[in-house]
Amino acid sequence: MQTKSVLSLEDVKRIAAAAEAEALAHQWPVTIAIVDDGGHLLWLQRLDGAAPVSAHIAPAKAHTAALGRRESRVYEEVINQGRTSFLSAPTIAGMLEGGVPILLQGQCVGAVGVSGVKSNEDAQVAKAGIAALG
Rank of each mutant, 00 (worst) to 15 (best):
T3R: 13
K4Y: 12
K4A: 12
K4G: 09
S5V: 13
S5K: 13
V6A: 10
L7F: 06
L9S: 11
D11A: 10
D11I: 04
V12A: 10
A18T: 02
E20T: 14
E22G: 03
L24I: 13
A25M: 11
Q27C: 09
Q27N: 15
W28Q: 07
P29M: 13
P29R: 13
T31I: 04
T31H: 06
I32L: 09
I32W: 02
I34Q: 05
I34V: 15
D36K: 04
D37I: 00
L41A: 07
L42P: 05
L44I: 15
L44G: 06
L44H: 08
R46H: 05
L47M: 14
D48R: 14
G49Q: 10
G49K: 11
A50R: 09
A50Y: 07
A50N: 08
P52R: 11
V53C: 09
S54G: 07
S54Q: 03
S54I: 08
A55Y: 05
P59S: 10
A60W: 01
A60N: 12
K61V: 11
K61E: 08
A62Y: 05
A62P: 06
H63C: 11
H63F: 15
A66R: 07
L67D: 04
R69H: 15
E71R: 14
E71Q: 12
S72Y: 00
S72R: 01
S72A: 14
S72W: 04
S72T: 04
S72P: 02
S72F: 02
R73N: 00
R73S: 04
V74T: 13
V74C: 06
Y75T: 03
Y75D: 07
E76I: 00
E77V: 11
E77R: 14
V78L: 15
Q81H: 15
R83Q: 14
T84E: 14
S85D: 15
L87V: 05
A89S: 10
P90I: 08
T91G: 00
T91S: 11
I92A: 02
I92K: 01
A93Q: 07
G94P: 07
M95S: 05
G98V: 02
V100T: 12
P101C: 06
I102M: 12
I102R: 05
L104E: 14
Q105L: 03
Q105C: 00
G106C: 10
Q107S: 13
Q107G: 01
Q107W: 05
C108T: 14
C108P: 07
V109C: 10
G110R: 06
V112I: 15
G113E: 03
S115I: 05
G116I: 08
G116L: 09
V117G: 00
K118R: 13
E121G: 00
D122S: 06
D122L: 03
D122A: 02
A123S: 13
A123T: 02
A123L: 02
A123M: 01
Q124I: 00
A126W: 01
K127Q: 15
K127H: 10
A128W: 05
G129H: 01
G129Q: 04
A131H: 12
A131D: 13
L133D: 03
